[in-house]
Design a protein around this nucleic acid. Structure first.
Lengths: 249, 249
DNA sequence: AAGTGGTCTAGACCACGTC
DNA sequence: ACGTGGTCTAGACCACTTT
């Protein structure tokens, strides 16, 4: 267990005390100052440090646990949670896991990679600036040897340290990024398009066959991290979600 | 304000008291026994009725408010909330509202309707039982006169009272259902398919053109309410969502 | 002015899991 | 056995809104 730094929790005097405590700890977590696994001080320690009652401290911690930022267990205490691997229907999900959950064997090939200033059509397709320095990758993911999804991705070198040294031989870029970068915001779009000639060839489908296109862009503190286009052959994929009128079921 | 029925709140002795209170009131709301606008008894009344402390009652009510089932205001008290009209990315949404939010003029045509035992291909397409009695509808929604989305829907007569008397001349079936039925669970699926001959004709697109297919089924207390297939021409539609690592932004 | 919810305290006992 | 979180109480004061 990573050691705790009790004095890092500082209140700002704005609003209810329980919310000050919640925001103080939340900020330590999302800023990365308390990485996953860090021990959050026990309630009695926070009580004394902050001069609040245990119920008030407890209320803040319960809310953080409900939000998924911390994990609480009796006796062993409270630690900072690992970021959730999945999120509702359209997620920052791991394609290897997605394939393995289908009971199929996962494999992938990095079809191309180029680093530096992106080509004009890449700039347009991902909404980049011409001056952005990125790695541009095309990756084909396979399930039981069959093409599963075609991934085209740019990764911003300025926000992802270690990018130049990584060759993605062991881990596909999406999964590598989960471990080597932080993100604070993401945007998804989903649409239907027909496969182009090159895409159809790589996916072993007919030109013009309907595909689901999932586009995802992520940022960390408003700095772009990565943008990806995932092309799923439509005949073989559905995204399913279940919920009730007041939230996810 | 609809009168309150304090004695309707009954605890079951299972689990924490605050959760018993929460579930008791939740059940009164989702069952329709306390319809939207009903006054929830004030905390002090629930305290006395249930023999719990105010903090415990408060905790239950705060959680219900956070879940959106009730609305609390000082002085004027707590009332049962109206069900949320929209839900996250893939919603029980109103197509008229969707079109009007795009700044376009909405119109629709009921292209066909048939009531009673559904045809075999309808049974299969919607996963019905052969004995289900349903209304089967095909509706074309237009934006600024242009085909916007093609809707094919079945509505279960057994769970939707008043269905036979409604001709959907004033309100499209999706919006009518929002006011005339309850639902407790829904399932969405999204996929890409090519337009068939008939669909292409109705949507004024080419046969085989990629479309987003949104399929939605809803139930109320495990009884089916409706199932719908919405076919959006892919070139003109994207579904977009934004969120952060710990939830919706 | 009065009724409602919002917050907070200082304690208590219990449940659970690790030591 | 012990340390942690989970629950609960009986009270207090405050903030807001309607009357």
């Amino acid at each position: 267990m990573i050691e705790t730094r009790l004095d890092a929790v500082k209140l700002d005097g704005a609003g209810p005390v329980y919310d000050q405590i919640r925001r103080a700890i939340r900020d330590l977590v999302v800023s990365g100052e308390w990485p996953p696994g860090t021990g959050v001080p026990p309630e009695h320690a926070l009580m004394e440090q902050l001069g609040a009652s245990r119920m008030t401290v407890h209320r803040a911690l319960v809310q953080l646990a409900r939000e998924g930022l911390i994990v609480r267990r009796r006796r062993s205490g409270t630690i900072v949670a690992s970021p959730p691997a999945s999120h509702a229907m359209l997620d920052i999900l791991s394609i290897p896991e997605e394939v393995e959950q289908l009971g199929q064997v996962y494999a992938y090939d990095v079809l191309s990679r180029s680093d530096g200033r992106p080509a004009p059509e890449v700039v347009e397709r991902f909404g980049l600036k011409r001056s952005d320095k990125v790695a541009h990758l095309v990756v084909l993911h396979r399930a039981d040897g069959m093409p599963h999804v075609l991934e085209e991705r740019v990764i911003h070198a300025a926000t992802v340290p270690g990018l130049a040294e990584e060759d993605f031989a062991e881990t596909p870029p999406g999964d590598w990024l989960l471990k080597h970068s932080l993100w604070s915001q993401a945007e998804h779009a989903i649409s239907a398009i027909g496969a182009g000639a090159e895409e159809a060839d790589l996916l072993s489908i007919a030109i013009g066959e309907p595909c689901l296109l999932v586009e995802r862009r992520t940022w960390n503190q408003s700095k772009p991290v990565t943008a990806v286009r995932l092309l799923y052959p439509g005949s073989r994929h559905r995204f399913v979600g279940r919920f009730g009128p007041y939230g996810q079921v």
